[in-house]
């Protein structure tokens, strides 16, 4: 077991977005979370990552975590290689992973985020998440820039990560996104609960 959510409920003020969510991810498993914007997908991912405390319920997570945020969260003052180096600083041998992953996502190492397109920034955030080789990889809307090649580039490493024993949890509002790694597809229903599709 890599991740287990039990009875997770979350409210923003009086508005309840998640209600009694139970979710378990095992090593090598890929779960896709679908649904329209504003349904609580990003909230659930942040709770799973330990970045947001749920109003009720428990989160049990094991191993290292990597995440690609919906808004990329890149350091604006350092280049692509520097952004990867920063996130991998605590990982032994992390520096050796930078060049291969940047090449894989077609990113020049010396370009600053301010000089990149939206698609390139998304690819850099994905490269950073996959390069970490974490036990749990969380991807929030990883394919939001299909025209820039984000979808194609992002989809390929997903099964690779799952095959290497890492669990992958990703959200999308595009129901046609179905990477080969996805073993389950779940949706947040109107009541804030999780339902299988």
């Amino acid at each position: 077991m890599i991740l287990r959510l039990r009875g997770v409920t979350h409210q923003f003020g009086s508005r309840r977005v998640l209600s009694g969510v139970d979710l378990t991810l095992a090593a090598g498993e890929g779960v896709r979370l679908v649904g329209p914007s504003g349904r609580g997908k990003s909230t659930l991912l942040e709770i799973a990552a330990g970045l947001l405390a749920p109003t009720r319920g428990t989160v049990d997570r094991r191993g290292r975590l990597a995440i690609a945020f919906q808004d990329d969260a890149l350091l604006p003052w350092t280049d692509a290689a520097g952004n990867l180096a920063y996130a991998l600083a605590g990982i032994p041998g992390g520096r050796q992973r930078i060049a291969p992953w940047l090449e894989r996502f077609g990113l020049p190492p010396d370009l600053l985020p301010g000089a990149m397109s939206g698609g390139m920034c998304r690819r850099l955030a994905l490269a950073r998440a996959f390069a970490a080789g974490a036990d749990l990889t969380i991807l929030d809307e990883p394919f939001a820039f299909p025209a820039a090649g984000g979808r194609a580039a992002g989809a390929r490493p997903t099964p690779h990560r799952a095959a290497a024993g890492g669990a992958v949890l990703h959200s999308t509002h595009q129901t046609e996104d179905t990477p080969a790694s996805t073993s389950r597809t779940l949706a947040i229903d109107d009541s804030g609960g999780l339902a299988g599709l």
């Binding site: 942040e46 990552a49 330990g50 970045l51 290292r64 975590l65 990597a66 995440i67 945020f69 969260a73 350091l75 350092t78 520097g82 920063y86 996130a87 991998l88 600083a89 605590g90 950073r128 970490a132 969380i138």
Partner: peptide, 18 residues
């Protein structure tokens, strides 16, 4: 950026410097 640093468990001296 703070959330990202926490998620990737970036060491405190690296967070401070970079």
């Amino acid at each position: 950026l703070r959330a990202m640093s926490r998620a990737f468990a970036v060491p405190a001296p690296v967070r401070l410097a970079r």
